[in-house]
Structure formats: C-alpha cells, structure tokens
Design a protein around this nucleic acid. Sequence first.
RNA 1: GAUCCGUUAGCUCAGCAGGUAGAGCAUCUGCCUUUUAAGCAGAGGGUCCGGAGUUCGAGCCUCCGACGGAUCACCA
Length: 582
Amino acid sequence: MQKILKKMTEQLSEQEIVRREALEQLRKLGINPYPQAMYEVNAYAKDVLEKFPEDNSLFREVSMAGRIMSRRIMGAASFAEIMDSTGRIQIYLKRDDICPGEDKTMYNTVFKKLLDIGDFIGIKGYAFVTKMGEITIHVKEFTVLAKSLRPLPIVKEKDGKVYDAFTDPDQRYRQRYVDLVVNENVKNTFIQRARIIQSMREFFIEKGYLEVETPILQPIPGGAAARPFVTHHNALNIPLYLRIANELYLKRLIVGGYEGVFEFAKDFRNEGMDRFHNPEFTVVELYVAYKDYLWMMEMTEKMLEKVVLDLYGKTKIKVGDKEIDFKAPFKRQTILGAIKEHTGYDLTGKSESEIREIAEKLGIETDEGMGKGKLIDEIFGEKCESSFIQPTFIMDYPVEMSPLCKRHRDNPELTERFELMVNGKELANAYTELNDPIDQRRRFEEQLKLMERGDDEAMFIDYDFLRALEYGMPPTSGIGIGIDRLVMLLTNQPSIQEVIFFPQMKPEKKVKPVTPEDFIKIGVPEEWAEHIMGAGYSSPSTLKESKVTAIQQKLNGYRKKKKLDIPVLKVEEIERWLKNIE
RNA sequence: GAUCCGUUAGCUCAGCAGGUAGAGCAUCUGCCUUUUAAGCAGAGGGUCCGGAGUUCGAGCCUCCGACGGAUCACCA
C-alpha cells in the first residue's frame, strides 16, 4: 500500500502533491475539506457589484460562496477573488478579523497556507469599497467548502487585455469544465445558447404548438439524406439506427390530429467532423397543419427576429466582419433565379444532360450518380450559396432534390421548399409537406433508383410512414432549423465545437511509452529485449508487420553489427513471440 | 483523405542554427494591514510528444510514428 501510494505521488506534479498535503493538514486541524452541510448563500457577485454603488446600506451581512480565483497576500491582510455562478468579486481578509482571539490558525495557516486557487469557500461579511475604488467583501468568517487538488490555469486580465489565456482547443473541449471556470466568455456563449432555445420554445408554445418527443432509436432512419449510426437491439435481435431526422415521426403526429408539433432533437449522422459538423447535433423541427411554405417563411422570419431581439435587444448583429440584420421580412429568391443571377445560366426546363453540361462548363465535378436535383444542388452550393450573407429564403427546389416535399402549385417540376441562407450557410429547410401518399410512394421509389445508381445518401422507404399518409394527412408545412449553426451565428462563434459543451473528440489516448518489458512479456529474452528497439522495432506490434525471416535477419544482423555477446536467434523462437502478440 | 504548421515546467511561451534547458505567471520559503496582471528577496520544478538514425555531442539535423491545429474536398 505504501508503495502504491508512493508510486501514485511520483506521477503527481509538485503542485498536486502540495495540495494533497494541504488536504491532510486541514483534516489534522479538524477541518473537513469536503463538508456535507449546505452553505447558505444570500448574495451573488453580480448583484453586489451592480447594486452596492447605488445604495451602500445594502449587503451589510452577506453570505456568499465560490471558488478562489486569485490571491494577494500581504502579511496580516489579504485580498482574493472568489467566483460564483454570476461572476467574480474581490474579498478582503484581515487576520485579526478572522481570528479575534489568540489563535491565529484560521488565517495564518488555513487561509494563507492550506487554501489554493481553485478551492471553494463560503464567506460571511459585508461589502465596502477599497481605496482603489473596488467593491469588496470584508470577510469576518470563512468556511472551507471543497478543496481542489489540481492547479487551474491562471488567466489574468488587465484593462481588458487577457494574459496567459487558456486557449488550446483540444484541452478546452476535452476539459470543458476547466474552460468554463477560466474563460468567462465561454460560459456566456452557453448561457446565450440556452436563451436562444428558450426564446424559440416560447414562440412555439405561445402559438399553441405541442412539444413532443419521438424515437431516437429508429428501425428505418428516415427524413433526411445521410449516413446513419447503427446499433443493435438484443431482445428484438434487430438493427436499430440513431435518427438522422425526426420528420417522419412528427408528420405521423400531424396525421394523428395535432395542429402543431415541435421537437428540439438530437440527430446523429455518421459523417465527417470539422468546424461545422459534429456527429450529434441539435435541430428543432416544427410541423403545422393547414399551412404552406409561404406561411412558414413568415413564421420563420418573425421567430428569428424575436430570438435576435430577445438576445440583443436589436435586430442587427455582428458576425465576423459582417453585419447581419434579422429584421423581418427577409429577401426571397428562387433557386433557379439565384443560379441565373450568379452564373448567367437559366436552368428552367433543362434536361439532366444539359444541366450536367452546364455544371461542367462552370468547373463543377460531376459523376453518373448525380441526378438532376443533385446537379442543381451542386451548382447552387458551389456558385451561389456563399453570397447570401443577409437572411434570404431560397425557394422552389427541383422535385428530384426533395422527396418529402409537395410539388409546386404552378410547376410540377419544382417543389414548395425553401432554405434559409444566412452568412453563406443554410440555416433552415422547410416544405409544404407532401401528403399525397401515391406521389410519396413514387418519390421513395425514385430514391431507391438513385440508391442503385450509387447515391449513398438516397432515402430508404418507410412503409409505415406511407401507411400513415394513406389514412390522410392534412396540408402541412414543416421546417427544420439547425440549432448549433444558429447559435454559432448568433453568438459569433467560428466553430460548432464552441457551441456544444462536449463536442465529439478522438478518444484521449494515454501514450504509454514502450519499454523492453513490453517485449519480455511476449517472450523475448531479456538480453534481446533491450536491443530489439535499437534494431528498429519500436513496439511489439511492429514485429507483426514483418515476416519471421525478415525479423530474424534484421535482429541477427544488428547483433553482428553491434558485436553483441548474446545467442543468435532462431526462426521458431521468433514465431513464438509473434503468437503472443495480440 | 490531401497539404501546411505545431507538441519544451502546472499555465502561456522563448530557445539564437547542434555544445550544461530559459522567462513570466503558478508553487515553495521569507518580508509586507486597502492591494489590482500587487511588490521585493530567495528556492524548487523538465521523459524538450515517442522511437530510430547522423554526430564526439541532438530541444535543434534526417527518417518513422503518435497527438493536435489550420486550410481544402464531402456532408447540416
């Protein structure tokens, strides 16, 4: 046991050892570093800082709690900052206030020696203003609430300038708790995220729509074009898919008779990861009966205007170096109109091969798997999308691209679909929903053909959904809005990882250095183990990549070159090692 | 997946062209009763990502690998 303890402490940094020792010291002094009892809080940093200047008769007896974020010790008096959920506030501790009697332990030992940056304490005292003009809590009594054993990164700030910032994205995302403690703006981003969602939810509820939950585990991953994650249900012995969209289930609920349903949902797509894509992401989908996509456009612009107003109190916001105005109404343009404007080509009424030719003239790579819809989508994505900075509805997509969307009332080649583009990115996607079950079945079948042509994103046929439509779905309009991207936009964050608390990361690998013992474990004799790495095999698994005879030659060659006084290796011996490698 | 860049103390980063590994903050020991990135004096702290090679000698040069970032391509 002693040995284990010693081994553990050997891996700890000096500062971690010091903190563990302080922990023991606290216990010896009869102070529980992790007390059970609640600590009464009657004031918060933000309130004190806001209200005390107006009325300094307030906060005569505060009880606050938080984490120590900095300390300035000057002999018998100290300043420190504690941080609670609302922010930081300075505290002032005077030895003879903390310890009115003879025993100065609480100040001299506990506060000055045994507490560290990162520890949680509770304080009781009163607010005052220092000579330097800073609102501060004069502490009369403090309580240790939780000891911190790891040093936090120390981020300092002066005149708005940040020093030694904790910025490494990998560490920040993996240890978001540290990021949140140390980087205040990160905490704010997530508060804003919550407000955005809350604002949208209020908007929907106020309209009388029902917030619902639908399956995440789906036997058929429908409603979008994407590669799903697969899992397996043991009792049913069937594959189940993590949903890529919730559209088909929400429409079933409209069939069931609800006027409007919405769901803030996590969707999962087994695709690439970068600063715009996380394998799980949040969308809100809304379906409303007896409406069409024109109505939905108005709803969308009104809702976004409200969300932005709720967040900023104005409709114009800065995103990167641009200013975006969410004042309704937004601009509207058809997709073919946009393509004509940006490329000069009018694709109206053109055949697949004609469009392919134009795409190639525009320098867009095409392949046989691409149908008409996909080609148009490519041209738009390549030549137009990035130019829509101000909120713009792009409408009337070709029917091939939108298998769940109703045909356009004036042109059966098109659909009543719009996407909302903001800052050059798609933010929302909406339809007048297809409720003709026969047309829907045909469209699914066309998807099947696309799949056969090699489009791995074409949709599966969901027969139960078709059955639902056959019972009759009222005319309905639906929309899906990417919450993560909306939050990125409204909080001016450059990557999706900045708006998701715990973005997906590669597993953290403790890279254990390979030692000769690793080779001894697979049966390599001790006298060889120390040389085998020198001969170019950096780990047991690298042996497995070579032929036995090649290993033999290399090792015996190494033995000769280095004039090692150890026995020559035989093939059988090496074969034995290889068998022991997992 | 491709290209480029990076990995040095708990944190943020230097390290001059191979020649004993540095700074600030943090930590530890002193001093200091209203400080402001507090200050002053001193101390400790490193697998320079891992491995191999070149060399008398590698943080630095070469090769292999790991991890990360940026950009590009595909996808919301």
